[in-house]
Nucleic acid binder design. Structure first.
Lengths: 232, 232
DNA sequence: TTCGCTGGATTGTTCAACGATCCAGCGATC
DNA sequence: GATCGCTGGATCGTTGAACAATCCAGCGAA
C-alpha cells in the first residue's frame, strides 16, 4: 500500500512543473507501520510472536494510540492478527493459506501477463530478469529473492492497475513473512532463473498465451514445493 | 472484510459442539465502520463529501479516536480517502478507476470460474441466478442489484479463497458507492439476467472455457457502459 | 480432578490538551 | 485591479492519562 503510489505524472512539462504530489510526509503511524513491516520482512518478528501495544509504543517512542493505528493497518494487510481483548500476533500460516495465496497469485499474475502491456512495462519485466542474473552471478542470495519479487511485481504492473499492484504488494509481503529466507535454500532459486527468462522472452515476442502457460506452470509447481515444505 | 468471515467449521459433530468462534462481539470501531459502510452503500454519503472526525464522533456518540480507527479501516478499503491535515472524504471516481476496478474483476472472476468449483458452490451460483429471476418477476429493482452482486460474489467463491472473497467484497463495495442506484436505470439490468443464466448453465455443464468467455464478454461490455455514463 | 474465585496484566475506549497544518478572508502594496 | 503576505479559525495529528472490560494463571476448596 505504501510502495507504489504517488506516481501520477500528468502532461509532464506542459503547464509547467506544478507539483502534483504534496511532498508526502508520512505520518507517525505510517512510519511505525513501515518499521513493523520491515521487521516482519526481515524476520525479526516471527510468525506467532505477540506484540504488546505498550511495549512497542515505548520501544519506538510513540503513543499507544499511534501504535494501535499502525496495528490496524497491518492487520488489514493480513500481516498481523488481532485477537480481541488478547492482543495482536504476527500472522501464522493456517491450513489452506498456501493454496489461498497462490490462488490469488494465479488469478492476477496470469491475467496480467495474458493481457500484455506497454513496451515500457515489458522492459521493466526484462530489467527484473537481468537483475536476477546479476544477483546469481554475484552469488547474492538476498538479491535473488528480491529480484524474483520484482519480476512478479513487474508482471502484475503490466496491467497498469493500482488496485492489482497493491494487492500484489500485500501478497508478496505475506510471502516474505511466511516463507522467510531461512526456510528457502539456494537450490530453490536455481530453476526459475531460466524460467523467468523464458517467460520474459515469450512476453517480448508477443506470445502471450505461452507466457501465461509458463507462468501458470511455475506458480503451480511453486505451490507444490511450498506445500511440501510447510504443512498443507 | 467484515462480511464473510467467522465460518470455520472443523470436524463438525465429532469432538462435540465446541464453539469455534468466540461469539464475535464487534468492537465499537468496527460497528462505526459498519455504520459508515452502510451509509456509503445506501447513498447517504455521496462521493466527495467530507467527513469531519468531531462531527461523526458526536453523531454516533463515540470518541474521536474510535472514529479515526474506523476511518483508517475504510480508507484501507478505498471507500474513504485521507488527505493529511485536511480531512477524510468519500472516495470519488478518478480517471482510470473504472478500468482499474474492472481489471481486478476480470482477473479474479474469470480465473475463478475457469477453475470450476464444488457442486455446492455451483449451486450457490445457481441460487443467485434464481434470486435475480424472482426479483425481476416482482419488479424489485433493489433486489435485482443485490442479486447480481450475489451472482458475481458466488462466482469468486468458487475458488474457495478467503483472500479473493474479501478482495471481491471490497470491489463490490466500491461499485455500490460509485455506481449508485440512482445512476443505473432498470434497462441496465435487463440484459444480464439472461446472460447470467447462460453463464450458470455453462458452468453447470462443465463448459468452463465457455463460461469464462461469456463472463469476460459481460465484464468488458459492462465496463464500456459504465465508462460511457461516467467519465473515462 | 474439577470448580470457582481472585489478582494482575493487557486491551478497548474515552477524554482533554496542544502543536501543526490548512484555508478563507482581508488588507497592503505595486 | 491583481498579487502578496498576514492572521484567525477550524480541523487534524499525536500525546498522555484514566478507567472499564476482558482474559489468564494461580490457588484454594469441594
Amino acid at each position: 500500500m505504501a510502495s507504489a503510489d504517488q506516481e501520477k505524472s500528468e502532461h509532464p512539462g506542459f503547464d509547467g512543473a506544478r507539483a502534483r504530489v504534496r511532498l508526502r510526509v508520512p505520518s507517525v503511524a505510517e512510519r511505525v507501520a513501515e518499521e513493523l513491516r520491515y521487521q516482519l520482512a526481515e524476520g525479526f518478528l516471527v510468525p506467532g510472536a505477540k506484540l504488546t501495544e505498550a511495549t512497542i509504543a515505548e520501544d519506538l517512542g510513540v503513543s499507544r494510540n499511534t501504535v494501535r493505528e499502525a496495528f490496524a493497518e497491518l492487520a488489514g494487510e493480513r500481516l498481523l492478527i488481532r485477537q480481541p481483548n488478547k492482543g495482536v500476533y504476527v500472522a501464522t500460516l493456517e491450513a489452506g493459506d498456501i493454496h489461498d495465496v497462490y490462488t490469488v497469485r494465479r488469478a492476477i499474475e496470469v491475467s496480467s501477463i495474458r493481457a500484455g502491456g506497454s513496451p515500457e512495462r515489458i522492459a521493466a519485466v526484462r530489467a527484473a530478469v537481468e537483475e536476477g542474473k546479476r544477483a546469481a552471478a554475484a552469488d547474492d542470495n538476498e538479491g535473488l529473492g528480491s529480484a524474483n519479487q520484482h519480476f512478479h511485481g513487474a508482471i502484475v504492473a503490466l496491467a497498469e492497475s493500482n488496485r492489482l499492484d497493491t494487492i500484489m504488494a500485500q501478497v508478496l509481503a505475506e510471502m516474505r513473512l511466511y516463507f522467510h529466507k531461512a526456510t528457502m535454500n539456494a537450490h530453490f532459486y536455481s530453476d526459475w532463473l531460466t524460467e523467468n527468462e523464458q517467460i520474459c522472452s515469450a512476453l517480448e515476442a508477443g506470445k502471450l498465451e505461452r507466457a501465461g502457460d509458463l507462468l501458470l506452470a511455475y506458480l503451480n509447481r511453486s505451490e507444490q514445493q511450498q506445500t511440501a515444505i510447510h504443512g498443507a
